[in-house]
């Protein structure tokens, strides 16, 4: 202890000197860090615009896939055109009747300008609104599968309750048997949803197609939702717990269609007369 004190006494000037220089150095370096921070901030602005450029560029690169899917979609639509059907297959495409005023569903193309998949309740924003004839409660579909339901509409934009949302319960059916169930998203992986309320006596296989059901007052009948990926029958349960691989890749959405049902008011007013007890 004494030796330490003597050491300090002997070198107190040197130690004081080192202390002062240490403080000065820390101040200098801190000042440099400040400059560094300023530099980093400005470079963030640079890198920010750089990233937005990159985004634009990658969107450009994705145009090929978007084009391909659009072409495929146009092909299926073309196949449905009455001119391409033999005369007595009007039942194949019952929605389009001979008069334009009786067309039930109207399609409006729109671009997804905002989209999330990571939350429990996800929403999308589209670049079309009431000026383009978009109405709330319309269905939103993509070329690969259904996407969601229009929630709110402003003149130029509209928001969509994504299928990846607790509030989205889509009436669905198995393509093979026509058995109706409900598709809902339990959260987690955005590629998978659940199909519930399918009774155990129905034959289901992995890979079976799930379509929208005619019970839905929002979606047209027979739109692709996804395919069965997992089948589970809970112990002692009478209903399947089916995992559905969704057709639409919600992370890659760029172009969608808003489907307006012109007959929905008529159907609703008629159904509202029913007195469920």
């Amino acid at each position: 202890m004494r030796a330490i004190l003597r050491f300090f006494a002997r070198f107190r000037l040197l130690l004081f000197f080192l202390l002062l220089e240490g403080i000065a150095l820390v101040l200098t370096v801190q000042n440099n860090q400040y400059h560094q921070a300023v530099f980093l901030n400005s470079s963030n602005a640079v890198s920010g615009s750089f990233y937005s450029e990159i985004n634009e560029f990658s969107e450009y690169l994705r145009l090929k896939q978007v084009n391909d899917s659009l072409v495929a979609y146009v092909e299926t639509l073309q196949a449905m055109l009455p001119a391409n059907q033999s005369l007595d297959t009007s039942s194949f495409y019952p929605l389009l009747t001979d008069s334009i005023v009786s067309q039930r569903y109207f399609y409006t193309g729109a671009k997804v300008i905002n989209n999330t998949v990571d939350f429990r309740n996800n929403y999308l924003t589209l670049n079309k609104g009431s000026l383009n004839g978009i109405k709330a409660r319309s269905a939103v579909i993509s070329s690969k599968g259904i996407v969601g339901i229009i929630k709110d509409v402003s003149p130029r934009f509209s928001t969509v309750i994504s299928l990846l949302n607790k509030n989205a319960r889509i009436s669905a059916r198995l393509k093979k048997s026509g058995t109706a169930g409900t598709v809902l998203w339990p959260g987690g992986n955005y590629r998978y949803a659940d199909l519930i309320e399918i009774p155990e006596h129905v034959e289901v296989k992995v890979g079976d197609t799930i379509l929208t059901s005619p019970y839905s007052s929002i979606f047209p009948d027979g739109l692709f939702i996804g395919t069965i990926a997992e089948i589970e029958l809970p112990e002692g349960g009478s209903m399947y717990q089916l995992r559905v691989k969704l057709g639409a890749d919600f992370k890659q959405l760029s172009y969608v269609w808003v489907v307006e049902d012109r007959f929905v008011a008529e159907r609703d007013s008629l159904e509202s007369k029913l007195n469920y007890e």
């Binding site: 000037l13 820390v26 101040l27 200098t28 370096v29």
Partner: peptide, 24 residues
């Protein structure tokens, strides 16, 4: 002497925004 020199340098540093260079 060192303390006064340090404070003098620090004063210059503060007004020239140079951290602790002059103090050093």
């Amino acid at each position: 002497l060192m303390l006064m020199a340090f404070l003098t340098g620090l004063a210059v540093d503060i007004f020239s925004n140079t951290g602790g260079m002059h103090a050093f």
